[in-house]
Design a binder for these strands. Structure first.
Lengths: 349, 349
DNA sequence: TTGTACGCGTTATCAT
DNA sequence: ATGATAACGCGTACAA
């Protein structure tokens, strides 16, 4: 229909004012007389002008109002994890003071498409995760001079980070289990490296994923010699697989299982009940995250409640601070122990 | 540190060429001699220039390379649904030809923050869902002259839509159940309106959510008089609640339950087993969506596999087409029936 | 192959 | 309260 969209100058001309006045009417940065305001708005209406072009505005302002969220994994996969989901929730909230929207970006290192991390019109970036790739992403973004916050990942100096007290929290949970009287414990971990190998982990085997390593270290402070079983991912079904492995041999059944995520714990519980073991009567199980595990009822998992939403919000607020030239403030968040119905003293043999 | 970021003219000056030449080196739109190319790149390196400013580039090009994804619900909530998750996956894929990134937008109608639907620098938009709000969002976007695609929602003329054959698919599943010999069936539905009321639905009660209404209509073609129980949301726990309601009275137990989502079906199965009923021996259950329900194993749900990823991809491709001035092509996708292990003939009394 | 000239649409600044 | 001016940083005809 129309040959070209109306611009603010068109509107200004139509209203008989200057372009700057029209601009001011829309931005509200400067008081305007009610009369001109009305005229400009009417002109806009007549011309079908719906407001300043965001591209031009952001060029002029030097801000796009967009915060990039960078994942190192397929986006679909990322959102499968409730913790990520909640974090996004908090992130959306945290940047809301800025009034920024979130741009989903994936840096798999071989993206041909644009806008990539190199070219996206973002004012700041939040890097999620802790794979080795993240380091590269970090370099790219910093090279562009864009403020960045890293969530639960390794980063260089001067990069604000949002971290969890993974080790200490897991130690506390392990201590709880120990206090109940358990000695015979198995640890079920998140993936230990990018290969996501499933199976028993040797005592000296290197663990390359920060989160896994930290939680493992915490548990080992209390149970240094507990067998360690790695899962391929954090899901109920993976937990079930791990649980079956653990409970397979009746003569070597532990009295407690410390899982590194709630999903894994739920799977372990499922496997236990499948085997005829009652939780927590025959075996105690702890999780990590404190998410709502759909289908776990009536159990209430003994777990460490991770402030996932707060994590996101903290990242968002850190970003907001940086954009307002405040000091980039990292944050160390604490998990809180939650005693549920899945732990009890070991069975009296 | 640096007082100002280098621009392409700085690089050009440093390299001893004109700005346009430098521009061409970065865009690759025009052949350049290897020598100048190298000089420009070297100059860029020296100045710490990492490429054209995306804001300026997009102003110039009239394109931002960003596609907005508009939800009518809290973002955290949206990603709780595996179908949404997979759709995002497909969407990311579908727009990848464009090389577009996805901007998460929420239009709750009262957002004060920017960029909102009004001001986001998007080339196109995908509207997800089918609440009444979507109509408003649609108007806003169309007012801006931005191409838009609606996924599974109501829309006006000329708006390409990606739809599912909800009614027909659900009818097919119901027919399958009927063919097995069931007469005594209960239907468990998704929310019927924005109030998300949980409970029995009267035969003449209006159903305001398109998806729910369509699937319900399909099932009623086969079982016109089946009792209808609405869930408050699509989750396993909601399904369990529904299941308990259904199986509470032993004298009025149906021999089959047709649920409008896999999550609900999984919950119903859980409730059935809790009551001591075996699936499918004592009661058959069907779902809808075909998502992987974590923790459902060893059952394989009889369900309608919804091409969730394809749905997203179709939306992405439709958007891509529109941006390339091709005809906006809507798409009617079909669900495929999958016979699992949760349906069987009714128990012979 | 390289350079010139111009405009993309807006807004900050400063004067009036 | 309003207007004139000058960028913001880049891409692209077109000319050389």
């Amino acid at each position: 229909m129309s040959t070209r969209r109306a611009t603010i100058s068109d509107v200004a001309r139509e209203a008989g004012v200057s372009a700057s006045t029209a601009s001011v009417v829309f931005s509200g940065k400067t008081p305007t007389s009610e009369a001109t305001r009305a005229r400009v708005l009417a002109a806009a209406e007549a011309l079908g002008y719906t407001g300043p072009d965001p591209r031009a505005a952001s060029l002029r302002r030097g801000r796009s109002g967009i915060v990039g969220v960078v994942f190192d994994t397929h986006l679909g996969t990322a959102f499968l994890d409730p913790v990520t989901t909640h974090m996004m929730d908090g992130l959306a909230d945290g940047v809301s003071r800025l009034g920024a929207a979130l741009l989903l970006l994936r840096d798999d290192g071989e993206t041909v498409s644009e806008p990539s991390l190199h070219t996206a019109p973002i004012d700041a970036a939040v890097l999620i995760g802790c794979s080795p790739r993240m380091r590269d992403s970090l370099e790219i973004v910093r090279g562009r001079g864009i403020p960045v916050v890293v969530v639960e990942g390794d980063a260089g100096e001067g990069v604000p980070r949002v971290l969890l007290d993974n080790a200490e929290a897991q130690r506390a949970a392990a201590q709880h289990v120990a206090d109940l009287g358990h000695h015979d414990v198995v640890l079920v971990t998140l993936p230990i490296d990018t290969s996501r190998r499933r199976g028993w982990v040797a005592a000296d085997e290197p663990v390359r994923v920060d989160v896994t390593a930290d939680r493992l270290a915490g548990a080992r402070e209390v149970f240094p010699h507990a067998p360690v079983l790695a899962a391929a991912t954090s899901s109920i079904d993976e937990g079930t697989i791990a649980g079956r492995t653990i409970f397979a041999d009746p003569s070597r059944r532990p009295t407690a299982v410390i899982a590194q995520s709630d999903l894994l714990a739920a799977g372990v519980i499922r496997a236990a009940e499948e085997t005829g073991l009652r939780v927590p009567h025959d075996v105690s199980v702890t999780g990590f995250d404190g998410v709502v595990v759909d289908g776990l009822a009536p159990h209430v998992l003994t777990t460490l409640v991770q402030p996932a939403t707060a994590k996101g919000r903290a990242a968002g607020e850190a970003v907001a601070a940086m954009l307002e030239d405040a000091e980039p403030s990292g944050l160390d968040l604490k998990c809180t122990f939650r005693a549920g119905t899945t732990t009890a003293p070991p069975p009296t043999t």
